[in-house]
């Protein structure tokens, strides 16, 4: 931007700060393309740049009466636009962090449920294995058995597993 245009922005800005409403339209028309291209360069995304440039323009005009007439108007306007870009980036960063947190909270929330399910499963298992006789329980390794593994024991284990599956199906309607 050439220095004359820059000075013109400062002049219009000073007039608007003083309460001259006639300065609004020329200032808006000069600032909009500059702010829009600044946000586009800063964010590199069209939709975000539009959104942020609009927010920056509204914010800029809301603070126009506080403009210090000794300052450069363009630098002041771009300072507000830069702040809006930073705000958007922070918001996006927070949004990216949120799903991880949400996942963590889901995991944390799921733990008691999971533990409850496991406890229910263990209780069901105990109830079923409790219905088996001592020989079957010993064959399934649920009770200590000091003897070495033998073909007879393997056969007994197989039969015990079949009975366990049958009891499970009878009680819960699904295969174990």
């Amino acid at each position: 931007m050439d220095p004359a245009e820059r000075r013109a922005i400062s002049t219009w800005m000073a007039r608007l700060a003083d309460g001259d409403r006639e300065a609004f339209t020329p200032l808006f028309e000069r600032l909009w393309p500059v702010v829009r291209s600044f946000t586009a360069r800063a964010l590199g995304h069209d939709a975000d740049a539009d959104d942020v440039a609009q927010r920056a323009m509204v914010s800029l005009f809301a603070r126009a009466s506080a403009y210090d007439t000794h300052r450069d108007g363009l630098a002041w306007a771009l300072g507000i636009a830069a702040w809006e870009c930073r705000t958007l980036r922070r918001r996006q960063q927070r949004r990216r962090e949120l799903p991880q947190d949400a996942a963590a909270s889901v995991r944390d929330d799921a733990t008691p449920e999971h533990a409850l399910l496991e406890a229910e499963l263990a209780a069901a298992f105990c109830a079923i294995t409790g219905s088996l006789d001592a020989e079957d329980r010993r064959a399934l390794g649920l009770e200590p058995d000091g003897g070495p593994a033998s073909p007879a024991l393997r056969k007994r284990k197989q039969r015990a597993l079949l009975r366990l599956r049958a009891v499970w199906s009878r009680m819960h309607g699904t295969g174990a």
Partner: peptide, 14 residues
């Protein structure tokens, strides 16, 4: 529409 919003923001700021 943006111009109207900016003008309203200016008046509110004043």
């Amino acid at each position: 529409r943006l111009r109207v919003r900016a003008r309203a923001a200016y008046e509110r700021g004043r």
